[in-house]
Design a protein around this nucleic acid. Sequence first.
DNA 1: TAGATTGTTAATCGATTAACAATC
DNA 2: TAGATTGTTAATCGATTAACAATC
Lengths: 217, 217
Amino acid sequence: MTDKEISRAVIKRLPRYFRYLGELKDAGVEKISSQELSQIMHVTASQIRQDLNNFGGFGQQGYGYNVKHLYDEIGRILGLDREHNLIIIGGGNLGSALAGYGNFANRGFIMKGVFDVSPSLAGQYIRNIPILPMSALPEFIEKNNIDIAVIAIPKTQAVAVADTLVKCGIKAIWNFSHVDLEVPDDVVVESVHLSESLMRLSYNLSRVGFGEEPDND
Amino acid sequence: MTDKEISRAVIKRLPRYFRYLGELKDAGVEKISSQELSQIMHVTASQIRQDLNNFGGFGQQGYGYNVKHLYDEIGRILGLDREHNLIIIGGGNLGSALAGYGNFANRGFIMKGVFDVSPSLAGQYIRNIPILPMSALPEFIEKNNIDIAVIAIPKTQAVAVADTLVKCGIKAIWNFSHVDLEVPDDVVVESVHLSESLMRLSYNLSRVGFGEEPDND
DNA sequence: TAGATTGTTAATCGATTAACAATC
DNA sequence: TAGATTGTTAATCGATTAACAATC
């Protein structure tokens, strides 16, 4: 099955559906209509039905959607039905925070190793995760079946490291450095630009109270 | 001046313009045309001109844009022409990482204090930033002219803490917990949902190589 | 069956791109 | 002045919402 082109806007919303459905499931809710879900999530019922129908008919007329089933389906669509092995480049504050964050492991994202340019860190551990020297990178990626590399180093080094990662066969980069990485077509990059997020907050803060609802997200 | 309604899409792009203009400025570039900038940033020149014109005519026909001037103007629009005082709720891995991250201070975002429910942390410091007990929150916000509160605690506590923050007069929340906070109209929330970002990466990773360029960002 | 709610088509709205007159 | 490039209007494209026939 070659999926029809799914719009970026829809994909952006999928994880949020997944989160709400997970909460409903945990709360013991068995079925939900697009109307009910729309009220909880503050979106239109029409959008929910349109979004879900990109991937197939998960609902049933006159009934609604089975929460557990829909949750599982969206999880599958998001690739959460299998485990991903990750490495983190950068053993600083942010790298350590990401390495130690348990929620990722719950969803099948397994942190396998942290790599740092500083030799002084090598040999240490962050919550059972070994810190290794950059020289060990290529072999480690191959041996541990690494899917995703997290870049948590300053932008000055990020571009060169991304090139190295691509050469090592990495197909997905979760980028926390303040630079837009240029990679081949078959490599995926998802960037988290924290300072840009903070600037948007600053913008909205300075505008609020002038009759412009800031459209929180 | 009551600014005309600026679309959310435009605001989202502003920090990225700011980043590129900062780099051009640091590289000593004096002027740039929308055409040149469009090639560097991989967007259309038309979009750049449309976006900038939401805020006024920053360019000059036949010449282009003065880099330094445009950088300053966008900085002003984003509210970066003044300092913001921040507190962080949560002294865990992520809270500590954000507290210790120097780049925010460079842009005028000053971390004033970290608050944690665990009394054992109180009295300690993260890079000169004191860790304080939650009981000290209301007075600290008032005395230190706090603008922005960062929520870096699990979602189970986040909702209650957000309510407390609002009661203390906080007008901007940078939310890292996995929950959508409901706040009054005059309070701004910017959420960084890390696990949703990672799920999008996972989605794109599982789709790549099927002829669908993953539209990196 | 009657009522409810989906899946899906059509209408609307908004955002992006193209085009070009204004002007430096 | 001639050339370049903006500011801005008009055209296109895509995404959201509304409507309703299909169907459980």
